Computed example of a mutant assay.
Amino acid sequence: MAQLKITLTHSAEHRLPKQRKIVKALGLGRINSTVVKPDNEATRGALFHIAHLVKVEQVK
């Protein structure tokens, strides 16, 4: 199964509380922090809400 490499490129400060909670739930703390998550519907749904804050790459 494919995985997604998610990098926080913009700060979550001064964003909607829902967006801040999603960033924290994904395990992203600071700008340029990176996590690898499975490519599933739950992850895609979370990324839909914070797409303007992150950069996503597909890894094998």
Rank of each mutant, 00 (worst) to 15 (best):
Q3Y: 14
M1F: 08
K55R: 07
K5Q: 14
T9F: 10
L16I: 12
L4F: 02
R30A: 14
A25S: 13
H49F: 05
K24H: 14
E57Q: 03
I22M: 07
T9K: 15
V36D: 02
L8P: 11
S33P: 12
L16C: 14
L8M: 13
K37D: 04
T7E: 12
R15E: 06
K60N: 15
K60T: 12
V59L: 03
R20Y: 06
L28I: 09
E13H: 07
P38A: 05
Q58T: 15
T43Y: 00
L47S: 05
K18E: 12
K37I: 03
E57P: 00
T34R: 07
M1L: 15
Q58C: 06
V23M: 09
E13G: 08
L26D: 02
T43C: 04
I50Q: 04
A51P: 00
I31A: 11
S11P: 08
A25D: 11
K60C: 12
K18R: 15
E41D: 15
H14P: 11
H10T: 11
E41Q: 11
A2T: 14
V23W: 08
H10E: 12
R15G: 01
L8Y: 07
L16W: 05
I31W: 12
R30W: 08
R30H: 11
V35T: 00
L53K: 00
A25P: 05
I31C: 06
M1T: 13
H52G: 01
H49N: 05
P38W: 03
A2P: 13
V36H: 00
T34F: 05
I31F: 07
V59H: 03
S33W: 14
I22R: 04
I31K: 15
V35H: 02
T7S: 11
K60Y: 13
N32R: 15
T7V: 11
E41T: 09
D39G: 04
Q19I: 01
G27M: 09
P17L: 07
E13Q: 13
D39Q: 03
R20A: 08
V36W: 04
A12R: 15
G45T: 01
V54A: 04
A42C: 08
Q3A: 14
